[in-house]
Nucleic acid binder design. Structure first.
Lengths: 218, 218
DNA sequence: ATATATTTTTAGTCTGTTCTAAAAATATAT
DNA sequence: ATATATTTTTAGAACAGACTAAAAATATAT
């Protein structure tokens, strides 16, 4: 039986390794888990014993097939619960992450299947991240960062890179959400800021915003 | 911060003390928690330190005001989740208990408030047990056991005493659910079995069934 | 009331997860 | 390439929650 803590470490390793197949260092893992490197070492050894990661001393850890399956399943649960919280309970997209962190650990395949059906088999969560299906397959959206947009083109907002409350609240305040149309008017060479038109209103967004908003040509 | 285990012990004490204000013995608590008496002693001491119970050596434990509030809140969450699982995800009433045991520990007042609203502020769970409102108040139904019914009267099924899967599945098999009309035809003095008419069909239920089904005169 | 049985507590150990401090390995800089 | 800095591991301890075995308190039976 896998513990809650093990599940969280596996999820962190998955995210740090960028979709599964890159070595993750002990320090990076410790930082992600808000713990100390020594604790991360201990856990990584345990995960290696249980065959969820391959681990070589001083080299880092990488998920095995079975570790990957667990990670993807937790992510599936996390994102389905986020959809539930936003679509059904009317939470805003900046509130749901922490709650989903708790809900993702509920153990029941049947619950997740039924929740998935209840939500209409969504393919993306409220931040535009893909929801793996029950076989672990993702539907990736062909997206670019706003920073890479072309002037005089119109795009659809399809996701965020940074899904921190602060960034999402910034977007809320500026009435930008998934599906919002964004027309790119001008790219300022000096500071890489971008002038856009949203909901009929012109505004300028900084480069840090442009680096964290995903768009797709309409 | 209260741990998951503490919360479960507090809930067990609440149930064993029959709605809060009766001493609970260490052995009874240990049995309910499927653990050993020594573990129950340890936990009860810890709960006493945190002021969730009053505890006297060799006398047992009883919930304080603050312990009681916690217990009722966990029960509220448990029963709301059960309603969600049955009404929205279409689980059957014999499947939801274990899942609700997990979901009841999700920490978020806002989530529970929104879930409550989403479900239409239900007053009873799928087994007929009352759901405390956000102030901790219950709406008790004026119910009797089927064993106490009068012959030639018609009743409404309003709850169960035993909510084990086996009993609930027995009721499922016999098409008895909350709201089902039950006409009492005959009480057998010999074995206390009862002949009833349900959905137009006559059947005989044993005394153990009659002791576990709550009804209300229509 | 004394002996016996039962319940409850204590003492000491185990496991899981964390920590600190120090040692070992690796990486970086001149 | 040697010294220095950084990263990673080890060793040892802490805490929560469980266990076993034995001791202490309470209850029951004659």
């Amino acid at each position: 039986m896998i513990t809650l803590t093990e599940e969280n470490y596996i999820k962190a390793i998955y995210h740090l390794s960028k979709h599964g197949k890159e070595m993750v260092s002990t320090n990076a893992l410790a930082e992600a888990m808000r713990t100390k490197a020594s604790s991360a070492t201990d856990m990584v050894k345990k995960l290696a014993e249980k065959n969820y990661v391959d681990y070589k001393k001083y080299q880092g850890a990488i998920l095995t097939e079975s570790g990957s399956t667990i990670a993807i399943n937790v992510i599936r649960k996390h994102r389905l619960w986020e959809v539930f919280l936003v679509d059904k309970l009317h939470f805003s997209w900046d509130e749901v992450h922490e709650l989903a962190e708790q809900l993702e650990h509920i153990k029941s395949q049947k619950l997740i299947d039924k929740l998935d059906a209840f939500l209409g088999h969504p393919t993306h969560d409220p931040h535009g991240d893909p929801i793996p299906d029950k076989h672990g397959d993702f539907t990736f959206i062909d997206k670019i960062m706003l920073a890479q947009a072309q002037v005089n083109e119109t795009y659809n907002c399809v996701g965020v890179n940074d899904s921190s409350s602060k960034f999402l609240q910034y977007l809320n305040n500026n009435k930008i959400e998934l599906g919002t149309k964004i027309e790119v008017l001008h790219k300022e060479a000096f500071d890489s800021s971008i002038k856009i038109k949203v909901n009929g209103l012109e505004m300028v967004v900084s480069n840090s915003v442009a680096q964290n908003l995903y768009i797709q040509k309409v």
